[in-house]
Design a protein around this nucleic acid. Structure first.
Lengths: 346, 346
DNA sequence: CTGAAAGCGCTAACAA
DNA sequence: TTGTTAGCGCTTTCAG
């Protein structure tokens, strides 16, 4: 009767028996609850170790209504940034006793279905990246009192809490530094096609600053977020007129493409003839062939903010979402002539 | 008494009541089990939709002893390949009704602890990437009859099942194609420092083929897996003697560094003076500044194999692990003079 | 095809 | 501090 089941995993009852205590004391010992004498705890832990006991998270979650899982719902992951964000979130979550449940929304689908799926696991919270949940789904999470946080993109009009790089401020800083170095004619290479929000914020900050400094509005070329788009942008700029003094790109890949086009096809020198600044500081920005000046997103700080917001929020604030902006770091290399941020007071 | 609890989630009992059936029929309907008449099923589904019922995976897993979670245990994720592997695994798992539980081993730690943690969620299987579980942990999983699969690295002497790019065969192919194009003096830029296994397999395949063709053994430079390592390798090769005809790199980043050093510092043309071949086919391999010929790992096929192995294995074969090798695709661009694989019969 | 009943392994009152 | 007891929401025999 004892081994009627197939494998009969070791349970807290077994541990209790071995340690000569009741099952509920074992439970307390393993849920870090107070009210267990050190001596008893010692005995329990020893018995548990001997038996190879493992605290069943499913049973615990079922009764607690919290699974110790943090759901990470993602759209299409492409940027290396996504990988380090995933890794950092996972590390920080684990440090606090949670683990990451990953749900990806298939290409073309929105993330609502993925969020719905994940709900069945009773996560402690949901982090959305590389996509934006619908207003309906946001409301549903609020109704369930489940914290939901959007990371890496601006929520726009959506009433979600979010953690995001301060794209606009970073773009302003880039503009200031370029202006201070004497540049007057600018272009912005956007990636609107792939994703409006963050590219738009960068464009807005950059263009507004340039214009209020009395310079002509930057020429905006919209060729997607790829290397190819950046490469093609050089031609596009020439067709519009002459090349500008400085180009700010919505992403590093664009910048690399543009630099290659400028140097190889046009035979112009960077930064002597034209300055280039990117965004994201991908690993290859530091490579000898580019040495790209770029804005680095602080992944660690962003992940920190996410975990913080998620686990400190008792009641998610529907209608009054928190928005946390993490500043970007301007990493200065040799692709642009610019005044260091300190010198221009930004 | 009904609303004594805080939120009282919708349960299968509620659905049963609304649909006018017993709770167990609802259970059957939602677990795709047979034995529910179409009419009843229809009523149940409608009631469930109206109430906003969600099949509780925790309760299901508790009784079933399988959580519908597929554990992905990872070491340090750095390669873009890891991201697409994660994404593909997640997509394929979801398509079969499973979701991915991610556990990362903190830098420096082995993955045993992470595997242990994950066991508490009763996953259907474990996938290990960017790290290697200890023999003890492998044995433990086998004892629990829990499939464990290593992906992306050679298990070596370890008795784990694995899915891995056929590094050695790919390296042989590269060697054949370079030999057929007339190259005679070779070098291999390894990344042993970062990770022995896969780099060694590539080295083995490459060197053995070159030697058996009657050429001198390739000079092996071991500078880590980074761009900087590749850059430095050019100098290292010059110090040893003269530059070889062709260089095969254990990773694309190495190749990019090497190419930049060769072209910028040494002023030599690629592939006219020297051929370069990489491994992994990172996105930038196709960029105009590199056009790197490289071996592409078939991520989709690998993920497919993993899921297949994991979910088809009734009893994991301890002592008789499965090893699945997925061929690499040689993507030919312009960084190397080489005969196409078809021409040399490989 | 459907229903009743017995748990899965655990937590959380409550009582001792 | 410890033990007793009642479930969490579900699957699964076993009868009807």
């Amino acid at each position: 009767m004892a081994d009627r089941k197939r494998i009969r995993a070791v349970t807290s009852v077994d541990v209790a028996r071995a340690a000569g205590v009741s099952q509920s004391v074992v439970s307390r010992a393993f849920s870090q609850a107070p009210g267990v004498s050190p001596a008893t705890r010692e005995r329990i832990e020893q018995a548990a170790a001997e038996l190879g006991y493992r605290h069943n998270q499913l049973a615990r979650g079922l009764i607690t209504r919290r699974s110790n899982l943090l759901a990470l719902v993602a759209g299409v992951l492409s940027n290396p940034l996504h990988l380090s964000l995933i890794q950092t979130l996972s590390r920080l979550a684990q440090a606090r006793g949670y683990r990451v449940l990953l749900a990806t929304a298939p290409d073309g689908h929105d993330m609502d279905a993925a969020i719905g799926d994940v709900l069945a696991y009773m996560p402690v919270g949901i982090v959305a990246m590389a996509g934006t949940p619908s207003a309906a789904q946001v409301g549903e999470c609020a109704r369930l009192k489940l914290p939901l946080i959007l990371v890496g993109r601006d929520p726009g009009a959506s009433l979600v809490s979010s953690v995001c790089c301060d794209n606009e401020a970073a773009a302003r800083q880039v503009a200031f530094c370029l202006l201070a170095a004497g540049h007057r004619r600018f272009a912005f290479l956007s990636s609107r096609v792939a994703d409006t929000a963050f590219s738009m914020a960068r464009e807005r900050g950059f263009c507004a600053t340039v214009v209020s400094a009395g310079c002509p509005a930057p020429i905006v070329v919209n060729g997607g977020s790829s290397y190819a788009g950046g490469y093609a942008a050089a031609d596009a700029l020439l067709n519009v007129g002459s090349l500008p003094d400085a180009v700010f790109c919505a992403g590093d890949a664009i910048a690399f493409g543009f630099m290659d086009a400028v140097r190889r096809d046009l035979g112009l020198s960077i930064p002597d003839r034209i300055s280039v600044v990117g965004f994201d500081d991908m690993p290859m920005a530091s490579w000898a062939s580019y040495e790209l000046t770029s804005v680095r997103q602080q992944v660690e700080a962003m992940a920190d903010a996410v975990i913080d917001l998620l686990l400190s929020t008792d009641v998610p604030d529907l209608g009054r979402p928190t928005k946390r902006l993490v500043p970007g770091d301007l990493i200065i290399r040799r692709s642009a002539r610019l005044a260091p941020p300190g010198a221009v007071g930004v």
